[in-house]
Design a protein around this nucleic acid. Structure first.
Lengths: 210, 210
DNA sequence: TAGATTTTGTGATTTCATTCACAAAAAGGA
DNA sequence: TCCTTTTTGTGAATGAAATCACAAAATCTA
């Protein structure tokens, strides 16, 4: 149950969805391995880790596999999510079409700035005072943090105290997860710095194999 | 020079910037290790890998360390970046304040939709026809892709053919890097799915240690 | 100056994910 | 029915990254 296998599960799902629309009924570990650029044994190990089994010589049934993966990823039903911080990133995520397809529903936004108490694409935006009651009333378990770094830890602590179990953090600061709460930090600066580093590194030894 | 050490370098930088504003002059591998939740030997190994050395018993000079890391990450000068795709994510990134602090400058946006040929925060947005000339004229090396998944591979191929060396891709599809080009894929769906999975997993065995 | 203490730098060790490799099962063909 | 082929499932081997552990250097103390 390591982090990488969860990540791959997500990628298998995306490949499988494409195969399904193409009318594929079964798939072999080899096919998925090629799609992700890994070894077929890795695919089978991942599946066996999560108790998914196929048929010897028959591969895996695409439909069943998708169902199993969705169940494991908790995507067998719609997941309600809130966003704290309705600046650029927050609003972009509210408008992001990709979530809908994946049964992820942004049900509300929260911000301290009263000028942002509008609606984005039918998603209501509330003041921070409403946060606690909303989380309880709607039993929200997952939140996205898109506030400036200076406010991020405070918001995280608040969310956790209100019962949030999983946080996706876009503030450029590593929030530590306390207790039974997962925090996944996505640092955009860091991601582009990686690109800049490797692009420069490749330019330096241009043409040479490592 | 593995991927993880580059990522950590970026994190050291962010910690060091905070220490600097707090007036710290020197720092020990132990301090940075604590900040990132790793072992001090790891910190020293990373630095030694990049030819950074400290003083025995004196630790590392904060200012010098920052300079070294910035040089390694190619952040000793302003990096010009373009964004292809001016939908929600693209526009959010254009407005994102964090980049400015890190000497990352978004100098233009590109989109097929003519209604988006406006300006965002002084950043001009052009049609795709201008892409080739702009990249050549400004010697742009880094691009961000924020188009729908269906268009992503085509845009990537285009960018590469125009001489782009590094791509940060936000389309929910894994673009394969060909030749001397780095592609870093950030899949937002995948990131939130990870959170949902772990939040559910923790809820299931609530309270139990693994 | 001598001895104690702190911290770096790195070889040795450990840990852990990935790949290899093959037995066992399933399906098809003659 | 029996032989051949295909593909799974998993124990063993590999490889790489993180951690351990300690000698060497630097600074401090008296």
């Amino acid at each position: 149950m390591n982090e990488n296998s969860i990540e791959r599960l997500s990628k298998y799902k995306s490949s499988l969805q494409k195969l399904k629309t193409l009318g594929f009924l079964k798939v072999f570990s080899d096919n998925l391995a090629d799609a992700l650029g890994i070894q077929s044994a890795q695919v089978r190990k991942d599946f066996s880790l999560f108790g998914i089994s196929g048929k010897k010589r028959g591969g895996y049934n695409v439909e069943d596999l998708l169902t199993s993966i969705n169940t494991i990823l908790g995507k067998d039903r719609i997941e309600n999510v809130i966003i704290v911080g309705c600046g650029n990133i927050g609003i972009a995520l509210m408008n992001y079409r990709g979530f809908v397809r994946e049964k992820i529903k942004i049900i509300a936004g929260f911000d301290i700035d009263p000028s942002r108490m509008a609606k984005v694409e039918k998603i209501p935006i509330y003041t921070m005072e409403k946060l606690k009651d909303f989380i309880h009333a709607e039993s929200v378990k997952i939140a996205i943090i898109a506030v400036p770094d200076i406010a991020a830890q405070r918001v995280a602590d608040l969310l956790i105290s209100y019962g949030i179990k999983g946080i996706l953090n876009f503030a450029p600061i590593k929030l530590k997860s306390q207790g039974e709460v997962v925090i996944n930090n996505v640092d955009l600066i860091q991601e582009i710095e990686k690109v800049i580093y490797y692009a420069n590194a490749m330019d330096d030894d241009n043409g040479k194999e490592s």
